[in-house]
Amino acid sequence: MMPKIADIENTPNPNAIKFVLKDRVAWGKPKEYGNPEEAQGDELARRLFAIPHVTNVFYADHWVTVTQDGNTEWADLARKVAQPIREAKAAEMPVRAELDSEPEQAEDSRLVAIKQLLDKHIRPTLIGDGGDLEVMTLCGNVLCIRYYGTCGSCPSSQTGTLIAIENLVRTIEPEIEVVSV
């Protein structure tokens, strides 16, 4: 089965567009590729990078976000990008062991609370816009996060969104500084 495109959405990043699909292209952890070399082992991403102007591919579950270099119009590029997405194989459901493959590690209680807060208040909006974030580390009072997809190159993620995240996590720890890596 091949995924059907249910909708194409603009994102806050003018150089990124989100394709919402009726079928899954992935299960679990999102996949992001920042260049054609990184995408060599992934058929969908490799085919998308073969299209001129594509600079980033990010996908998870029922959506694919494609970022371009800003040197072409989306009206033309979206048609080209839609073809490999329509031709991609739908992801098969993994066995339960594959979903649980990451080892559990004891985490700082502050970090657990921060992740829960971000999962509830920030990540749904970012995912809705075709991006996401991952908490990388909490060293002392410095929380390092990494943006994915449309958020990775969006100017507002480095300003307004980062400030909102910092204000939110300061409800747990008033001295925390949030840094995008």
Results as ranks from 00 to 15, higher is better:
3 P>W: 00
4 K>I: 08
4 K>F: 00
6 A>Q: 08
6 A>G: 12
10 N>K: 04
10 N>L: 05
11 T>G: 01
13 N>H: 04
15 N>A: 01
15 N>E: 00
16 A>D: 02
20 V>T: 09
22 K>Y: 12
22 K>A: 08
23 D>E: 13
23 D>V: 07
23 D>S: 13
23 D>C: 07
24 R>T: 12
24 R>V: 14
28 G>M: 04
28 G>F: 03
29 K>Q: 13
29 K>S: 06
29 K>L: 09
32 E>C: 06
32 E>D: 15
37 E>P: 05
38 E>W: 06
38 E>Q: 13
39 A>Y: 09
40 Q>D: 09
40 Q>R: 11
45 A>P: 13
46 R>V: 14
47 R>P: 07
47 R>Y: 09
48 L>R: 00
49 F>C: 06
49 F>M: 08
49 F>N: 04
50 A>M: 08
55 T>K: 10
57 V>E: 10
57 V>I: 15
59 Y>S: 11
59 Y>W: 07
59 Y>V: 13
60 A>D: 09
60 A>H: 08
61 D>L: 15
61 D>A: 09
64 V>T: 12
66 V>I: 14
68 Q>G: 10
74 W>K: 02
75 A>F: 14
75 A>S: 15
76 D>H: 15
79 R>Q: 15
80 K>Y: 04
81 V>K: 01
81 V>H: 00
84 P>M: 02
84 P>Q: 08
85 I>P: 03
89 K>S: 14
91 A>F: 03
95 V>P: 08
95 V>E: 14
96 R>T: 14
102 E>G: 11
107 E>R: 15
111 L>M: 12
112 V>D: 07
113 A>V: 05
113 A>K: 10
113 A>E: 11
116 Q>K: 15
118 L>D: 10
118 L>K: 09
118 L>M: 10
120 K>G: 03
120 K>A: 09
120 K>F: 13
120 K>N: 08
122 I>D: 01
127 I>L: 04
128 G>K: 03
129 D>M: 09
130 G>K: 04
135 V>R: 04
138 L>S: 02
138 L>E: 06
138 L>T: 05
140 G>F: 02
141 N>Q: 05
142 V>H: 12
143 L>Y: 01
149 G>P: 03
151 C>T: 02
151 C>E: 01
151 C>P: 04
153 S>P: 00
155 P>D: 11
157 S>P: 04
165 I>Y: 08
165 I>T: 11
167 N>F: 07
169 V>T: 04
170 R>C: 00
170 R>N: 02
171 T>H: 10
171 T>E: 10
171 T>Q: 14
176 I>D: 00
176 I>L: 07
177 E>T: 07
180 S>K: 08
180 S>V: 13
181 V>G: 11
